[in-house]
Design a protein around this nucleic acid. Structure first.
Lengths: 234, 234
DNA sequence: CGGTACGTTGAGTCATATCAACCATAGTGG
DNA sequence: CCACTATGGTTGATATGACTCAACGTACCG
C-alpha cells in the first residue's frame, strides 16, 4: 500500500523547512532528520495510527490532508482537527510518552515523513528555539480546543455548522470557482459539528435556501460569508 | 485586596519544587525565580486575569483553587479546568505571546506566585528538561481537552454530569466524611457540564434518588462510584 | 427587616436525534 | 450486460432530551 524511501524527499530542500517550527534548526539537525526519516505514501481511507498505539515517532505532512478524530463510546467519530502540508501529527504522544489518544486517517492521498521519536526529544532538549516554537504550536492547539469546547457546549447545531464552514474557508480556501478546497462527506461534517448526518443535510439545504451557500454533492461554495458568520455568532 | 511580598514564600523550600515541572531546575534558576516572583493573596471571587489580557507572566498556585473558564457569546461561562496547589496558570499566553483566551477566578482563597514572562521563556530556551516537562503538561491538557470535546459532542447531559462527578472525585478527593473536597454552586457544575442550572439540579436529585450520591447543599458525597461510571459510559 | 444570591420544582416548548423509507451512483461478479 | 451490493445522500414522521420561563423557598448578610 505504501512504499518507503529516504531520498524521495530531501529535508534540505523541503519548503516546510522555512516554517516557524523548523526554521531554527541547524544544518546538522536537518541532516539528522533527513537521514533518519522515512517517507511514505498513503491513499484515501488509510489509517496512519490509531487510538492506543504506541508511537515510535511523529509524522510531518508533506502533501495531502488527514483527519484526526477520537472514537466515542458508541463508535461515532469526533473530528478534532485536520492536518495538511507543513503540519505535524502524532507528536503529542511522543512528547508525553503515552499511547495515541486519537486516530489519524487519510482524507486526500498523502505523502508523510516519519521521524523517529528520539530525534524529536533530542531537538526539544537541545534546541531552545525549536522547543519554544513547538510549545507555541501546542498552545495554539490548546487554545483552539478550549474554544471548541465552549462552542459545542453553548452553541446550537446550526450555529456550529455555520462556524465550521467559515473555518474550513479560512483553513483550506477555495478554488477558482469558489469551491471549498476540502471534500467532506455529510457524515464527516456531522462528526466535526457533533451532530447527526441528517441534521447536517437539513441545515445545509436551509443555508442553500437562504442563499448562504451553494451545494453540489460534496462541493460547497460559500456565497455569503458574513451571513454565515452572523449565524455563527462570530 | 492582596498584599505582595517576595519573601513570604521561598521557592527554595517550596514543596512544589519537587514536582516534575520544577524538579530539573538548577539552584541558580530557582534563585532567579525566587528573587523575581511576587507572591499575592486572592480571596474567593477575585478575578486573576481575564480574556483579552496581555500577560506579563504566569502564576504558580501555592494554595487554594481557581477555576478557568471561557465566556461564551451570551456571557455564559464554560469552565475548562481547575487549578490547585502545584499547578501553573496563564503560561499558555506567555508562550504563544497572545492575549489570554480564558478568565481565571478564585474558588477558594489562594496564594499565587507571579513569575515574570522572561523567566519562563528563558527556562524553555535554556533548560531542555524543563521545556520537555512543560510540553508534557501542555500535551496532557490538550489530550484532556480533546476528550472533553468528544464527551460534550456525543454524551447526554446525564452522562456528562456523572462523568464530571467521577473526575472531581479523582482530582480533589474526599474528606473524612466522604464529601467531595471542592465546593461548587449548581451553576458552576452546569458551566462545567455545559447545560442549564436547572438540569443539574434535576439530575443531582435523580442521582440521589438512585442512591448514587448524597447531597447536602454544596456538599456532595459519592456513594456509588461504579454506578456513576456506568452511567457515564466510562 | 429587606435585599441578594442560590436552590428547587413545574409546565410548556423547541431543537435535535432517531427511525424508516427511498433514491443515486459506482463498483462487482456471474 | 445486467442484477447485486455497498455507500452516500435525502426527506418525512415521530419521539424526547434539554432549555426556558416562571414561581417560590431558603439562607445569609448588612
Amino acid at each position: 500500500m505504501n512504499a518507503s524511501s529516504s531520498d524521495l524527499i530531501n529535508c534540505d530542500s523541503c519548503t516546510i523547512r522555512t516554517q516557524p517550527l523548523f526554521r531554527h534548526l541547524t544544518e546538522e539537525e536537518i541532516q539528522d532528520i533527513s537521514l533518519n526519516k522515512i517517507t511514505e505514501f498513503f491513499k484515501r481511507g488509510s489509517v496512519i495510527y490509531q487510538e492506543g498505539n504506541r508511537m515510535k515517532g511523529f509524522y510531518c505532512v508533506n502533501n495531502g490532508i488527514v483527519k484526526i478524530y477520537k472514537t466515542g463510546f458508541d463508535g461515532k467519530q469526533q473530528i478534532v482537527r485536520f492536518a495538511r502540508k507543513g503540519d505535524i501529527i502524532g507528536y503529542r504522544s511522543v512528547i508525553s510518552n503515552e499511547p495515541a489518544c486519537t486516530t489519524t486517517e487519510v482524507l486526500e492521498d498523502c505523502i508523510l515523513c516519519h521521524i523517529p521519536a528520539e530525534i524529536l526529544l533530542r531537538l526539544v532538549k537541545n534546541n531552545g528555539s525549536f522547543a519554544l516554537e513547538l510549545m507555541k504550536l501546542t498552545c495554539k492547539e490548546l487554545g483552539e480546543a478550549n474554544a471548541y469546547i465552549t462552542d459545542i457546549a453553548q452553541k446550537t447545531v446550526k450555529e456550529r455548522l455555520a462556524e465550521i464552514l467559515v473555518h474550513l474557508d479560512d483553513d483550506f480556501g477555495t478554488d477558482a470557482n469558489g469551491i471549498l478546497m476540502i471534500s467532506l462527506t455529510r457524515e464527516e461534517l456531522a462528526n466535526m459539528v457533533g451532530t447527526a448526518t441528517e441534521s447536517v443535510i437539513r441545515l445545509l439545504s436551509e443555508f442553500r435556501g437562504s442563499g448562504l451557500i451553494e451545494v453540489n454533492g460534496r462541493k460547497i461554495k460559500i456565497l455569503d460569508r458574513p451571513g454565515l458568520k452572523y449565524i455563527a455568532n462570530m
